[in-house]
Amino acid sequence: MKIRTVRYFSREAVRGIFRNKLMSLAAVGTITMALLIFGGLYLVTSNLQYWGQRARNQLEVRAFLTKNAPDRQVMEERLSSIPGVKSVKFISKEEGARILGEMFGQTDLFSHGENPLPDSFNIYPVRGADVEAIAVKIERISGVEEVVYGRNFVRFLNLFVRLIWIVGLILISLTVFAVLYIVINTIQLTVYARRNEIEIMKLVGATDSFVRWPFLLEGIYLGITGALVSILLLFQGYTILYGKAKSFARILPVLSSFEVTMDLIVFLLIMGIFFGALGSILSVRRYLKV
């Protein structure tokens, strides 16, 4: 392919867009709408996931020691050597009493009698997902009386995080097909309006790929435009929502728009190009049979 021809293709693609303004606008609009749906789904999914993961990473295991357990140093070593453990924190029975007292609003909870609380450790896992496995191992260590962690909560969280992934993925892939169908139909209209052009090109001896290229480029340009518009709208909308959500952020953590930026931009651009290009190729194909 000559460089001149490449220039011709890009020029034709740009001309094609501007000489069929209404059709181009329709195509960009459709792609934008489609990508807004994707972007929205993506934002919701990644925020839910983020929420789940954060909750999971705040998990801890509490191990209560027996009365005749080895001293603190030995126990700390035993607990720390379990794979997947990030850190351990010793809580003496005196401290335990203080914490418990605070909870009940009394400072001298056991000051009149013997403190019945055992010494304990808080164990923090590297990955929240490993809490259960770590807890099982701690139970087997001698000197440990009882292990406490939110068993059901952990199971729920693990399921929740996985479910969001699966549901998000299913929703996105279902929408891909629906959206592709709509986008192809729209682009097909733009190509239909120019079927004469294709026919004449074929009759004067243009090869199929020569006919296809300008349409392909045009589709890509339209796809990129649609992606940029949807990116702009999504970030504007998300920034506004983020501002509103920040006031509850302590209960419900939200990803800041910077944290989702790059991934989402790349994702939407790729989707836009994909829709535009595929839509064009499939639409032109029908009219190439001259």
């Binding site: 004449i200 090109m201 004067v204 001896g205």
Partner: peptide
């Protein structure tokens, strides 16, 4: 079968453009 959005010149040169 002329292309309505191309000028007279372009309608003719088109036949040569497509054969490079």
């Amino acid at each position: 079968k002329l292309l309505p959005n191309k000028t007279v010149y372009e309608n003719i040169s088109f036949a040569l453009e497509v054969i490079e």
